[in-house]
Amino acid sequence: MESAISKSRDASSFSQQNLPSENIEAAPIYIPPKERFLEFRRQPSAQRASVLAFAGALMFLGLWEAGHYLTPASARKFFPSIGEVGSALYVLFAERNFLQDVSVSCWRIFISFMAASAIAVPIGILMGSFGNIRALFNPTLTAWRYLPAASFIPLLLVWFGPTDQAKIALLFIGVIFFLISLVLDNTTAIQKEFVEAGLTMGASRSTILTGIVVPAALPAIFDSMRNMIAVSWTYLVIAEIVGAQDGIGAVMMRAGRFLNVDVIMAGIVTIGALGLLTDLIFRGICRALFPWNVERRS
């Protein structure tokens, strides 16, 4: 009895099944079940994903082209084909100095969005960090969020006339209130122990704010900004109705008056492409600024 106990104390006394090292026969090859197109949560390879993305785009273009040919011939000019929109796009850039309009629109988006972010990000962070600041501003800002930006057009026209300022102001109003509430959420969502760790390390409030809260919330804030700049692009056409002179929206409105549907569609395509480009730039900036936040690929 005694010896059994002292023996079991020694781990080597447990019977250990040693696998034969000289296995002559190779283990059978495992044949996995056949993979179907719809597998829950299975991610395609990068190559497969790009093929699928291309196929998706082709499906859209096919629908467009089909739509064109299914439209009765008499109304077909109101639903131009891809080729017609393409050539309208070519004419716009080559003969009508469309690049100038595109850059004016981009500039308006850029300036209005920078101004909105410069105000919304600090206010949102302060509201998310301090309950009293939040209580001070949030009820008023919530009301503002429900006001449609387009309803400010008459007011902006009275104040600024058909100027650049009016358009930039509209784009600014269109995003700032939503951006504030998103930044507020991003800030409150940081792990509360980060702030508590700062407190127990003896950090001052300003150190916790700038050294802990801001870096912790910033990647999410940039994500919110990326989403809100998309909203900014959607407001562009509305903004450029205000005394339409230049910009993508103005060109589209003018084309509408002459029922040049191909030009309108060319404008839509241009905005879509620019939106996609903005998104890619933002993602690039995020990856460069927050290398520590890059998703690990397994």
Binding site: A197, I212, P215, A216
Partner: peptide, 11 residues
Amino acid sequence: MIFQAYTSFPW
């Protein structure tokens, strides 16, 4: 203080 949640700052 050392917390149960991971508080090493990710940035």
